[in-house]
């Protein structure tokens, strides 16, 4: 019981802190701003805890920072990739669907993974694979180039993300 409560408290403090930071960016840092901000941040943190209970997930800040850098690089590559294809007079596209088999059950990690990969080069997640059949449990991706090593790239991203959001 006790560890769970500790986790809850820690999540509450971290989220209140982050939301308070957002408030100071938006509203300023005068005395009245800060006073109102604590109330607003606490309220928003409560909403957040209701919607997303701390659960077994833990976010590691150091790895998260590294992942953000990787993500920035990837999204630049994604933009360049699309720009190259759009400006190329031959329009080099081989679009199609692939199914990426993932072991992640539906939940926060899987949603974060699809959101993350939707911003990567060449892939847009297009929902879960049909519930029955060989692909059950996988995620359907639409790719600009089905011959590219998409699955390998997605697997690398999944490993990277798993280092940030992990089950304890």
């Amino acid at each position: 019981m006790a560890p769970g409560q500790n986790g809850d408290r820690r999540a509450a403090i971290v989220r209140t802190g982050l939301l308070f930071g957002l408030w100071t960016i938006l509203a300023g840092t005068g005395v009245a701003d800060l006073l109102v901000g604590t109330v607003v941040a606490a309220l928003a943190a409560r909403v957040s805890l209701n919607l997303l209970s701390p659960g077994p997930h833990r976010v590691d800040p150091a790895t998260a920072a590294r992942l953000s850098l990787r993500f920035l690089l990837q999204s630049v590559l994604a933009g360049l990739d699309v720009a190259r294809r759009a400006f190329d007079p031959r329009l080099p596209l081989r679009p199609g669907f692939i199914v990426y088999p993932t072991a992640a059950p539906p939940g926060l990690f899987r949603s974060a993974f699809t959101a993350f990969t939707s911003l990567l080069p060449g892939t847009v997640p297009a929902g879960p694979a049909p519930a029955r059949g060989a692909d059950a449990g996988g995620i359907v991706y639409h790719c600009l180039d089905v011959d590219a090593p998409v699955a390998a790239q997605l697997a690398a991203e999944e490993t990277a993300l798993a280092g940030v959001i992990r089950d304890e």
Partner: peptide
């Protein structure tokens, strides 16, 4: 799942933003 994820993550931010 995608909409649910957005609702869970964005709503607290929206509360701060709105106020």
């Amino acid at each position: 799942a995608a909409l649910e994820f957005l609702a869970r993550v964005l709503t607290p931010v929206g509360v701060v933003l709105g106020i």
